[in-house]
Write a protein that binds this DNA or RNA. Structure first.
Length: 472
DNA sequence: TGAAATGTTGGGGCG
DNA sequence: ACGCCCCAACATTTC
């Protein structure tokens, strides 16, 4: 028996468009598919763990169809790899690249360890259309402005077409954990009902969602993408995070499915924002912790635990904000337009540090992704690259009325307001007493009064912004 | 990938 | 008929 190749799965939990797996399969050597759960890094949130369970289940099932099985190990990544190499006599390890700072450092250490022991390794790109070091501005540096970045990407060499799932014929075996033993699913209480109703983790679920989006949604994408009551977006973000699907597959499917159009360009540009986040994180690794724009280090954030808690639980008294936060809590996901609204509210109306919002999203989003999360929060806060200027402050009432005109989104996630007519559903405190009574709403009791006055909060935010602008 | 404040314009009411 | 005022409606500027 020939020595096996370990295919180390990470954020590429799929068989198609998986260059590491394809290369291993092409070698003709037996393949040992391995996934390592390493609790050493930033702890995964509950919704992410739920999703990971589903993706690993699906990947294992796909491998079993070929007569293989996914080997699960838990512990320090480098130690696990050493053990598996020793146990199986593997002579090489293939994987697809990750781009988070800790992953880069970890993988560098692993590579030197493998080199020392004479174990071959190869890494591939499965997760990005344009790897961060391949795109640079005229000065040879990283981009800090999205439109320029994306223009540069679009004029660069086109992404490789995705590869089909290889016909894997030969597997190596090794012992491993059962997935159940990892206890990734919530037990007492089982809060994952909303996730199960909304999502099908894994490669097939991702492909079905993509096809549905291209068939039904793309033609109206530009308008519908901002309406949270509609399913106008692809909802692929958690699948992309775990690698149930890769951006090359989305890119190719979208471009072969649809004629060139503003809708298509806009959709691909959203994939571009993901690329931009990875570009930023790679070149400015500190953005997960620190402001990209240093003048924000002086920003007078306020510590306000009760306001933070009200925001987290969807009890701010602003219906569109509360609907978004409850959608997140219930489904592990939030519509993009609403993410911007709730983030603006936290940072600008409550003056709470974006890092508190980033941490909450990290804990609760199924698509929690270091690059996207940090870059997007800094974008909203104004401290990031190509950021919204700080004075661009969303009015939660106007945003609600503009993007959820009938109030359907609010009614879905804030059922205690469901009886209010559209004219008041985004500002219940302005409703006449009789209308509130008819709707069964008692403000301050069945639904909170606004925890801040937006007009005052806006003035306060502008004043806070002025303090860092003058000084710097 | 805003909103509010301020400025401008033009139609209609009215003396 | 004319000038004046009011104020939507729209545009521009500012935060």
């Amino acid at each position: 028996m020939r020595a096996p190749i370990i295919v180390w799965f990470r954020q590429d939990l799929r068989l198609s468009d998986n260059p590491a797996l394809a290369a291993a399969a092409a070698s003709g050597d037996p393949i040992l598919p391995l996934y390592i759960l390493d609790d050493g890094g930033r702890a995964m949130g509950g919704a992410s763990r739920w999703w990971l369970h589903g993706s690993l289940t699906a990947l294992d099932a796909s491998l079993k169809a070929y007569g293989g099985a996914l080997v699960l190990r838990r512990g320090d990544t480098a130690n696990i790899l050493s053990q598996v190499i020793a146990e199986t006599g593997a002579r090489s390890v293939y994987w697809n690249r990750c781009y988070e700072p800790h992953a880069i450092a970890r993988d560098a250490a692993i590579k030197s360890g493998l080199t020392r022991r004479g174990i071959a390794f190869q890494s591939f790109n499965a997760s990005l259309l344009f790897e961060p070091w391949t795109i640079q501005n005229k000065a040879g540096g990283p981009y800090k402005v999205f439109t320029q970045f994306w223009k540069s990407c679009l004029s660069a060499a086109a992404p490789e077409p995705p590869q089909r799932a290889p016909d894997v014929r030969l597997f190596a075996k090794a012992t491993g954990d059962t997935l159940a033993a990892w206890r990734l699913l919530p037990e007492k209480p089982d809060w994952a009902g909303g996730l199960r109703e909304n999502w099908t983790p894994g490669e097939r679920g991702a492909r079905a969602l993509l096809d549905h989006f291209l068939d039904e949604k793309l033609k109206a994408y530009r308008e519908a993408r901002d309406m949270p009551a509609l399913e106008g977006t692809s909802r692929l973000s958690p699948h992309l995070h775990f690698g149930d699907i890769g951006p090359r597959q989305i890119w190719q499917a979208a471009r072969t499915h649809a004629e060139p159009s503003a809708n298509l360009d806009r959709f691909l540009a959203e994939i571009g924002w993901r690329e931009f986040s990875y570009h930023l994180l790679f070149h400015f690794a500190h953005i997960t912790q620190r402001n990209l724009r240093a003048e924000f280090d002086r920003f007078p954030w306020e510590k306000n635990d009760s306001a933070l808690a009200a925001w987290q639980r969807g009890r701010t008294g602003y219906p569109i904000v509360d609907a978004g936060m409850r959608e997140l809590w219930h489904t592990g996901w939030m519509h993009n337009r609403v993410r911007m609204i709730v983030a603006s509210f936290l940072v600008k109306d409550l003056l709470i540090d974006w890092r508190a919002g980033e941490a909450w999203f990290w804990d609760t989003l199924a698509d929690a992704d270091l690059a996207n999360n940090a870059a997007s929060w800094q974008w909203v806060a104004g401290s990031g690259a190509d950021a919204a200027p700080y004075f661009r402050i969303f009015n939660p009432v106007l945003q609600g009325e503009k993007f959820d005109p009938q109030g359907d989104y609010v009614r879905r996630y804030v059922p205690e307001l469901a009886g209010l007519p559209a004219a008041y559903v985004h500002k219940p405190w302005t409703a006449p007493a009789q209308i509130l009574r008819d709707a069964g709403v008692t403000l301050g009791k069945t639904y909170p009064l606004p925890i801040v006055d937006h007009a005052k909060a806006r003035d306060r935010a502008l004043a806070a912004f002025a303090t860092i602008r003058k000084a710097g």
